[in-house]
């Protein structure tokens, strides 16, 4: 394997992606998302504690901000991965550029690694740049200060966002490797992303309600019995929902990041590291799930691509 070829394809893919309008659109969307999350958090806190000096808002809206951000990211990140992955190979096939490249002295695995690293850098770039811009904007407009723990959590958010997005990229890449047509791979990739992030949670809720319907009261029960029945129903609903949702990547990503949001504030850097390590150890299952979600389609893509007949 020749590292020079991988570097070349990586930098070419990165510069190609950066020029695309969709990358610019993503940065703008991310900035809006960040700023909106920040604004929503400050508004909520201000409404709760009227008359609170702005300087004190620094810490209190942090959790709200990160929670808002997490919900938005969980929805958006799959589509970022899909956006850079759906035409990674099928687009090259369709345009005839894959044929042009592969008739040169380059192995297919070098090409695919280069494409993957190019996409990884682009996704990291989009998330990093938009976070920096958004934090700058938020600090300037809302006077929100940056604390070390917030910065640390944002860095971790960024790293796991990249991992989550890349796992979706890997799925789209696999479809793109199998497909010869961009429209087909786009359609399938978006359908999968929509099914898993939006449709599956709805179906889970419907299913849970069907198998665990709310209790029906005749009117003869005592208030405490009613309360107990409702509490029991809610607990069972929650248990069923969680166990079913745990199969979904969105759930694992949110679980991992919610653990990080829970890290105490105002800790020394040493203590921050130690608590982060504890959270990550406690989220090994979620982490493994996300890593495997990226690795399995990636390995499958490699295995198919190196043996694929070019039509």
């Amino acid at each position: 394997m020749k590292w020079d070829n991988i570097k070349l394809i990586t930098s070419f893919t990165f510069s190609d992606n950066i020029r695309m309008k969709r990358t610019f659109a993503l940065v703008v969307l991310f900035v809006i998302l960040f700023v909106a999350s920040m604004r929503l958090a400050t508004l909520t806190v201000l409404r709760r504690i009227p008359g609170l000096p702005r300087a004190l808002i620094r810490i209190s809206p942090q959790r709200l901000f990160l929670n808002n951000l997490l919900s938005n990211l969980a929805l958006l990140l799959p589509f970022i991965g899909v956006m850079f992955g759906y035409d990674a190979i099928s687009g090259e096939k369709e345009r005839g550029t894959l044929r042009m490249i592969l008739t040169q002295p380059i192995y297919r695995d070098e090409f695919l690694i280069g494409k993957f690293l190019g996409a990884l850098s682009t996704i990291a770039f989009v998330i990093l740049v938009s976070q920096v811009i958004a934090m700058g904007v938020s600090m300037a407009i809302y006077g929100i200060g940056m604390s070390m723990d917030l910065l640390w959590k944002l860095i971790l958010f960024m790293l796991f966002s990249i991992l989550y997005s890349i796992s979706w990229y890997a799925i789209a890449l696999l479809i793109s490797v199998i497909s010869n047509r961009t429209s087909y791979s786009a359609l399938i990739s978006i359908a999968i992303a929509l099914s898993i992030t939006i449709i599956a949670p709805i179906l889970v809720s419907v299913y849970v309600t069907m198998v665990n319907p709310p209790p029906i009261f005749t009117g003869s029960e005592s208030p405490s019995a009613r309360q107990n029945a409702i509490r029991k129903w809610l607990m069972e609903t929650q248990r069923l929902r969680s166990s079913l949702m745990s199969f979904l990547p969105d759930f694992q990503f949110q679980r991992l990041l919610r653990g990080l949001i829970g890290i105490s504030n105002d800790l020394s850097f040493q203590a921050l590291l130690s608590e982060t390590a504890n959270v990550l150890l406690g989220s090994t299952l979620s982490l493994t799930y996300l890593v495997l979600m990226a690795l399995i389609p990636l390995i499958a893509s490699f295995m198919i691509f190196v043996k694929q007949e070019l039509k």
């Binding site: 020029r19 345009r95 005839g96 550029t97 894959l98 044929r99 042009m100």
Partner: peptide, 11 residues
């Protein structure tokens, strides 16, 4: 090699 249906990066 000049393959059949060769393509280029159009942009």
């Amino acid at each position: 090699i000049l393959p059949e249906r060769i393509g280029f990066y159009e942009h």
